[in-house]
């Protein structure tokens, strides 16, 4: 059972549609008590970082999410849901993120067309669980103005960490992260056609058989 968090924004319906299409059991909730008992969490997102964190805060979900992820619960954050994992974002500097991963989300440099919108190609790191059964160089759909710079990737010897995929838009940036059972994707798998559905399927698999690796 995937617990999808409804914080009153984002493209919730698209994620629901995709999970329903995959015939995956899921619930949609904004209750802290549901999230505390979840076996896997999906945080979708489009919109504004500050609004998201504020909503999560009002719903009492910030401490619950931190605890759940620290326990090693499978988590997939999409777009803003990936940004939420980090310490802060330039989009709303006064609203700290969950801080489960170290780093700051940045705005794309002036000179580039922003939002970065459309289909871009991934460079997938070997060993990623999220990208199992996905051929090299898939195109996935992005719609965002803020990103995680590759400089924020910890050195490769940090325990359990993978930058699961990179993409290029003016600069190389992190398109997906994996650390233990924590997954974040900058793109929208629910809008990336058949390949995106396969990635969601992979997360569903992971959430059935969580990694035995140490939690984050």
């Amino acid at each position: 059972m995937i617990t999808v968090i409804d914080y009153g924004a984002g493209n919730l319906r698209s994620v629901e549609n995709a999970l329903r299409y995959l015939e995956t059991p899921f619930q949609v909730t904004s209750q802290a008590s549901d999230v505390a008992q979840a076996s896997a969490i999906l945080l979708p997102g489009v919109g504004h970082f500050g609004q998201m964190i504020r909503s999560l805060d009002v719903l009492g979900l910030v401490p619950v999410l931190r605890q759940a992820l620290n326990r090693g619960l499978p988590y997939l954050g999409i777009c803003l849901g990936m940004h939420a994992l980090y310490e802060r974002s330039e989009e709303a500097p006064s609203w700290p993120g969950l801080g489960l991963l170290r780093g700051t989300i940045r705005r794309f440099e002036p000179g580039l067309k922003v939002p970065h919108m459309g289909w871009n190609q991934l460079r997938i790191a070997p060993g990623s669980r999220l990208f199992q059964n996905i051929a090299a160089g898939p195109f996935v759909y992005f719609a965002h103005s803020y990103y995680l710079p590759t400089e924020e990737i910890p050195s490769s010897n940090e325990k359990n960490f993978h930058a699961a995929a990179l993409a290029d838009y003016g600069v190389p940036f992190v398109a997906a992260v994996e650390k233990s059972n924590i997954y974040g994707v900058q793109f929208h798998p629910e809008k990336s056609g058949e390949l995106g559905l396969q990635m969601l399927r992979n997360f569903v698999e992971v959430s059935r058989k969580p990694s035995s690796r140490m939690p984050a």
């Binding site: 319906r13 698209s14 549609n17 995709a18 329903r20 299409y21 759909y141 719609a143 629910e190 809008k191 990336s192 056609g193 058949e194 995106g196 559905l197």
Partner: peptide, 8 residues
Amino acid sequence: TARQVFIP
């Protein structure tokens, strides 16, 4: 449409 088409 959105139930069966997973592109923007």
